[in-house]
């Protein structure tokens, strides 16, 4: 499989661009503190010196972009926008990937169990998937975030809630794949030797499920990052003052007339991340799909 991915990256320029983007943004997320130290600002400190004392607007052109403040500053507070976007990357990336892991683990276990065991297990799972896919989950998530006790850390709550609502799509794909694998004789061979369901899952099904799982997971990361941004935009995401793209965008809306750069930088970061994951995921699908003939 790694060989197939390398071959794909060499052939498919767009997927390569996506992979590079994702890697760069991943680095930014991991080394956020280091980067902002180099830039000389953290996302929390107010800096009235960077503001125009008369209006509270950033001093200078383009939202106060300067050698000191690379992306400019926030109006009224003077906080460094570069530091906010960089630290927001960490929040978005972490929540996006962790919630994907939650959905993948749930989806694979439930989907494979439904496909392999069949019968009532399958009926209940398919029924639950249909219900969850039609569920107004955004409303539900907002409600949960409102009523959840404050002792639970918000990022953890977001990961669990976003992850939990993501499993049905993955379970559906894994179930379909398991149903076709079950027809293959190597699964029958293991069963006739007395192998139990867990053994069959681990040694026969899972190695053949990796390719679709990786593709679906990669393609679902951006929608989760978007969901976190949406929740933060609506004010039920990560709490103030933790930087988040969604809340940055939400706050920038009221300044868009006077300071458009405030909207453009976090928006661009969100766009680049979702674009990178999508293009890379598409490339992966082409490379790992058995139907494309490359294995």
């Amino acid at each position: 499989m790694p060989a197939a991915i390398l071959r794909m990256l060499r052939r498919d320029r767009w997927a390569l661009a996506g992979a590079v983007t994702v890697t760069v943004i991943g680095f930014v997320a991991v080394f956020a503190t280091l980067l902002t130290t180099i830039a000389g600002h953290d996302p929390y400190t107010y800096d009235s010196a960077a503001l125009d004392p008369a209006t509270g607007q950033p001093a200078g052109v383009l939202g106060g972009i300067s050698g000191d403040h690379w992306f400019g500053v926030e109006p009224l507070t003077g906080r460094d926008l570069f530091a906010i976007v960089v630290h927001g990357t960490r929040t978005s990336f972490f929540i996006g990937i962790a919630s994907t892991v939650v959905s993948v683990v749930l989806g694979v276990l439930v989907g494979a169990a439904a496909g392999y065991l069949g019968g009532w297990t399958d009926r209940i799972v398919t029924w639950a998937v249909d219900v969850f896919l039609g569920f107004p989950y955004l409303v539900f998530m907002i409600a949960i975030s409102m009523v959840a006790p404050p002792e639970i850390p918000k990022p953890l709550l977001l990961i669990v809630v976003i992850g939990f609502f993501g499993w049905p799509g993955i379970a559906r794909i894994v179930r379909a794949q398991t149903l076709t694998l079950k027809q293959r004789n190597f699964v029958a061979a293991a069963r006739t030797l007395g192998a139990g369901p867990w053994h069959v899952f681990r040694t026969e099904l899972l190695p053949n499920l990796w390719a679709p799982i990786i593709v679906v997971a990669t393609l679902s990361v951006p929608s989760r990052i978007g969901l976190e941004a949406a929740l933060s935009f609506l004010g039920v995401g990560v709490p103030v003052p933790t930087p988040s793209w969604g809340r940055s965008i939400s706050e920038a809306i009221q300044w868009v007339g006077t300071d458009p750069m405030l909207l453009i930088f976090p928006g661009l970061a969100l766009f680049l991340t979702t674009w990178g994951f999508n293009v890379f995921g598409d490339g992966l699908r082409d490379a790992l799909d058995p139907k494309s003939g490359v294995r």
């Binding site: 293959r184 004789n185 190597f186 029958a188 061979a189 040694t203 026969e204 190695p207 053949n208 990796w210 294995r295």
Partner: peptide
């Protein structure tokens, strides 16, 4: 069918 009876990833 020997191809289908062997796990392609093993």
């Amino acid at each position: 069918d020997p191809l289908s009876s062997l796990n392609p990833r093993a």
